[in-house]
Design a protein around this nucleic acid. Structure first.
Lengths: 185, 185
DNA sequence: TAAGATTGAGGCATCAATCTTA
DNA sequence: TAAGATTGATGCCTCAATCTTA
């Protein structure tokens, strides 16, 4: 469960300067020290927070982080049900990931699959009573962890700054994806 | 490679209020709208950025993100070598994860394992010439992606704010881990 | 006994291929 | 042909058990 402190060096201080074989010599703009520091801090936070939240859920419930977000999404729907496709879109997952994950959750009785009547290609994922009980039992501990690790250790201004920065990063990725996914570099 | 935009709802607007069976009734402080918004934004950024960086490396090199950080760490060492234990600590990985990952990288010729002479329990991981070529070929594209998605879309102030906030979060997790890993909630 | 490291089992994520219905 | 969804293969990550040396 516990992870040791990290003093990782994610990127070279003196980055390698050779360019890939045969490609036209595109000059690379490396990161300066401040940028390097910020980037490392973000990546480390990323890894540690994920591990900490996953560990809390594993210790205090029978749900993984992935189970948790699926159940939250389903229980937020009026019907407690969602199409696989919509679930994938809202969660930002691949459809096949949803399919595999739902199959596993179904064997544990947390959800159940139903054929869609209007569009016979589709299926519904429905949260079961056991699924509802599981998420209701897990939610308080999870929220406490989110507070303990993030919300309660940052000022309102810091939290807002993180939200804004996150939004910008996601926009940049969206732009890149839209530029056909072949926009590349 | 491309992911669609996400309008995910990570947490309940009206969170479930039941507490786990049998436990003493600890009141739960749920998140307000601003906190909810910030938390969602962070989680979404988290997922999308990881996917985008992994996709770039997958498209432009034969390295995964995990391969990349291992090779960066090794090539930053004077000897191009590191003990498994130190690698695990610096990367924040479990030792068994390092062991498995190194084994896979070794079969691809990126690294090689060597017994440690002074402490016969230990082993060294050594980067090979092929490993050096691979990281040097992959680095420019990776750095361009980091700039494109993060460094170049944030102001210096935003980047600094993210770094500070990340540091605080990691400190909070460290504190929690130190409080024996059984400190819990 | 404990520390460094490896192994095997099992859950998880991605990719490509496939199946069914529109 | 294309969209919704599933499947199988493969690689990745965690946990618990194990092996070797200190």
């Amino acid at each position: 469960v516990g992870k040791e402190p990290v003093d990782q060096e994610e990127h070279p201080r003196t980055p390698p300067v050779r360019t890939p074989q045969g490609l036209p010599e595109v000059p690379v703009q490396w990161l300066d020290d401040e940028q390097q520091r910020a980037w490392q801090a973000l990546m480390i936070m990323h890894a540690r927070l994920n591990a900490a939240l996953a560990a809390q859920l594993a210790a205090d419930s029978d749900l993984s982080l992935a189970d948790y977000v699926v159940l939250v999404d389903l229980t937020n729907r009026a019907e407690g049900a969602a199409r696989v496709h919509d679930l994938a879109r809202r969660l930002g997952w691949e459809r096949s990931r949803v399919s595999h994950h739902i199959a596993r959750m179904a064997t544990r009785g947390l959800v159940r699959k139903e054929r869609c009547a209007s569009d016979k290609r589709g299926s519904f994922v429905v949260v079961t009573d056991a699924g509802r009980r599981a998420i209701e039992a897990a939610a308080p501990g999870h929220v406490r962890a989110v507070r303990k690790y993030v919300v309660d250790v940052l000022t309102d201004e810091q939290l807002a700054a993180v939200a804004d920065a996150s939004g910008r990063v996601v926009e940049a990725i969206d732009r890149s994806d839209q530029a056909d996914g072949g926009g590349e570099f």
